[in-house]
Simulated assay, not measured.
Amino acid sequence: MAAIDVSALMPELLLIAKKAGEAIMQIYNQPASFTLITLKSDQSPLTQADQAANDLISVRLAVLTPNVPVLSEEGKMVPYEERQAWPLYWCVDPLDGTKEFISRNGEFTVNIALIVGTTPVAGVIYAPVTDELYFTDGQNGAYKVKGNQESVKLAVIGKTDTLIAVKSRSHGAPEEIAFLNQFSVADEIRVGSSLKFCLIAEGKAQLYFRHGPTMEWDTAAGHAILAQAGGKVTGPDGEPFTYNKPSLLNGSFLCTAWQ
């Protein structure tokens, strides 16, 4: 499987993310009583919007890069025995922040990442409610586009004497509070989904620690974008944070606005 030129594909990737967002918004804008919610085997919620976005992204990626496999939250689970041989693949969360979608707070995203080996290289995050795109091709920095405005290059603000931490809107653990106590945190921002990575990438926060479980598709696109904006994603003790593991469940991780 040959490497692909993500920079050449980026216009279409951005369009795919936006079209998935449009499919989500068609359901989001209906009365809540019309939004069908079911529970997956792990008791996490699944909506019509998750499935609609997944179907659209999967079909369009297959057309765009027919030789690159797709690993998606709402797609067929691929056993490690098969995917361990993949040199690269798309890692997709068609609707990240389903709880935010259900609660109607607008803080949900479409996540598409390209994993090469065990590292997220390129990524697209789209926030449909605010019409904001965050993206990187993995070589030329990270960018944000809001609506029809010009793209803005993202850059972290680095480490300062006092820090701004970003925290989850729907999740939290005592371990996270204890871990952050080792830093000089002066303020915090709470937000849902992969937008936490984006806030650090665009210089609005500097620190995010997650103790509770996530999946690889929850973090891959944000990881790629933050890295290209000058930040870093590691394990709590600075160890590499890798992908395409035997288990797709992530351990604890730390996002910082510095290397």
Score class of each variant (00 low, 15 high):
98 T>L: 09
110 V>S: 08
195 L>E: 00
208 Y>N: 10
256 T>W: 10
22 E>N: 11
231 G>C: 06
241 F>E: 14
204 K>S: 09
34 F>P: 03
133 L>M: 11
185 V>D: 15
159 K>G: 06
248 L>P: 08
210 R>D: 03
102 I>G: 05
79 P>S: 02
208 Y>D: 08
76 K>Q: 15
172 G>D: 03
144 K>E: 07
249 L>I: 12
181 N>E: 05
74 E>Y: 04
99 K>Q: 08
96 D>Q: 11
42 D>E: 06
160 T>H: 15
217 W>R: 11
178 A>I: 13
93 D>R: 04
4 I>K: 07
241 F>T: 08
83 R>V: 01
55 D>M: 08
3 A>Y: 02
149 Q>F: 05
177 I>L: 11
66 P>V: 02
97 G>C: 08
239 E>Y: 07
173 A>I: 10
3 A>N: 14
179 F>D: 10
251 G>E: 14
35 T>N: 15
250 N>G: 00
66 P>S: 03
55 D>V: 01
137 D>W: 04
2 A>Q: 12
112 I>R: 15
69 P>C: 09
108 F>R: 02
48 Q>H: 08
208 Y>L: 02
134 Y>C: 08
190 R>M: 00
238 G>W: 02
109 T>W: 11
155 A>Y: 12
92 V>N: 09
176 E>M: 07
97 G>K: 12
114 L>Q: 08
112 I>T: 15
211 H>K: 11
120 P>L: 00
135 F>E: 03
96 D>T: 00
119 T>D: 12
21 G>V: 01
189 I>F: 09
204 K>V: 04
62 A>Y: 03
140 N>E: 05
24 I>Q: 11
49 A>F: 06
216 E>L: 15
168 S>G: 12
54 N>P: 04
122 A>Y: 04
5 D>P: 01
154 L>I: 12
172 G>F: 10
204 K>Y: 03
111 N>F: 12
157 I>C: 05
55 D>L: 06
2 A>W: 00
117 G>F: 07
158 G>R: 11
172 G>R: 08
36 L>F: 07
81 E>V: 01
130 T>G: 05
198 C>G: 07
182 Q>S: 08
82 E>K: 11
149 Q>K: 13
89 Y>R: 10
165 A>N: 07
99 K>I: 00
196 K>F: 00
51 Q>S: 03
73 E>W: 05
109 T>S: 12
191 V>P: 04
68 V>E: 06
134 Y>D: 05
188 E>Q: 13
227 A>P: 14
113 A>S: 12
217 W>A: 14
92 V>P: 06
181 N>H: 04
163 L>E: 03
56 L>E: 08
217 W>S: 14
85 A>F: 09
129 V>M: 06
214 T>G: 10
25 M>S: 11
16 I>K: 09
65 T>P: 12
139 Q>A: 05
177 I>Q: 15
189 I>C: 10
206 Q>F: 07
77 M>P: 03
49 A>I: 01
12 E>K: 13
123 G>I: 00
70 V>S: 05
153 K>V: 03
102 I>L: 09
29 N>F: 05
190 R>K: 14
205 A>G: 06
242 T>V: 15
164 I>V: 12
106 G>S: 00
38 T>Q: 15
196 K>G: 04
117 G>Y: 06
70 V>F: 01
190 R>W: 02
84 Q>G: 05
151 S>Q: 12
135 F>Q: 06
